[in-house]
Amino acid sequence: MTPAPLFRIQDLHVRLRHRGGERTLVREVSLSVRSGQSVGLVGESGSGKSVSIKAAMRLLPRGTRAEGRIAFDGGDVLTLGRRELARYRSREVALIHQDPRAHINPTRTVGAFLTEGVVHTGQMNRAEATERACALMADVGITDAARRLHQYPHQLSGGLLQRVMIVAALLPSPRLIFADEPTTALDVTVQSDVMAILLEQIRERQVSMLFVTHDLDLAAAVTDRLAVMYAGSIVETGPSAEISARPLHPYTAGLLQCRPSTAEVKRLTAIPGRPVAAHEAGTGCSFAPRCPFAVERCRAERPHDRSIEGRTVACHRVEEIADRLEERAS
């Protein structure tokens, strides 16, 4: 038997109080990350991917309610008390945000930002923290680390600052890193660089990663497994390489087809309509209104997860249409 995963979300629902009622943001999300594994959570805006990460860090805003089970190393994250929660956030997991500039205090130096957390939680004294920060900065390719520690965020470029954020995430030696679109704000060459550094570091240290992005090609390239989200639910889960080579859910197939390639020009097969949020989805499959394969049943009944070819796919017709999806994709 395989050991229990390091991190597991089971049947997560997130609801937001809205004008006297409630709005569903995330519906029936289940996913797991094993020790040393990287998992990609892919979706368009409003699909609930960031909300899921926030729920996993217990960082949901007021008025939102998370139900279900989020387990880290066997313990239930949703019921952690103050002290355990502080410990969980400061030592077990780390979060890298999309916009580094919005998540660093502009009035304090890079060094103060990096060492504050680990010194405050008593993991290291200031001298140790500074020394380790310097070593990590060298690892992520920041030259002249000692000088950088005395600089302010505005003196660093976006790519450099995101590497500082990686150092901040790694410093307390967490076992799991949540990376929420960590390279979306960066130029492609910088993205490639920062992504390579992040992968190198987590592999060396055996750290697990949950990588959130809208870019399916990027996620497929840097993760072991993928979960594709649409309208607050996961529609397909499986090994990254297999999903990008042979998508089984019509939405995944559609996403892959509508991405323009740098190598050839052909008319893009766009997905009609627009992405919907979970609360806008009707009773049936939330993708049905945009799906070329939708039948009556899809519009009436919400599909349950089905296992096929070692993957989990939430589609009524997956067995019938699997081969046709491939034809369309080629």
Partner: peptide, 19 residues
Amino acid sequence: RALVDAVPRPGWRPRRRPA
């Protein structure tokens, strides 16, 4: 070339830039 190579696509791997 560096710009073209940095675009994620199937089979792509992120690469560190030479320092």
